[in-house]
Amino acid sequence: MSVERSSWQIKNEATLSELVQLMGLSADEAAILKSLQSAAQRQAPAMREDFYKRLLAHPQTAEYFSDINMNHMYDMLQTWFVELFCGVYDEAYARRRMKIGDTHVRIGLPVRYPLAMLDVAMKHAEDVARTHAQSDAAITAVRKVLALDVAVFNQAYEDRQIQALAEMVGNERLARRLLAGE
């Protein structure tokens, strides 16, 4: 990996605009998602219930919620879900999503948990999408924005690893080479 990759220069909020372009998330798809925001609002409590039912039943994930104000967590999760349907996937959206990924990193939550929980969100998001007159297009669109979240969550972990290692060894490119196992 001695070659400098242009993808390494894309950082922070710019990663989301890059991914929107990569995935071909169109203005029409964004409009479809926006039109579903009220439906998402109605679906959010059911999603929240399924989500936390699973998380709290698993000892390793439940321990992250001891001494936590669960009402605040419920609100945040529902907001996160409804925002999938905000219709504007710009830098401000990227910042909000990245903040969630950063929080996961900061509390030491292994990345497998947020990723494994996305199927709950996926099911409910698709339920919302099915209420649209163009349900197939809506499902395609909702899968794209959820995939964006998967990418952003993963990127938060990778960014933190590279940043920590680069600070230690004094060079980001060297840190990338070390993480690549060279």
Partner: peptide, 12 residues
């Protein structure tokens, strides 16, 4: 890579 790492950590 090891040499650069050693020097990076030493500088730190």
């Amino acid at each position: 890579a090891v040499a650069a790492t050693i020097m990076g950590v030493t500088r730190r």
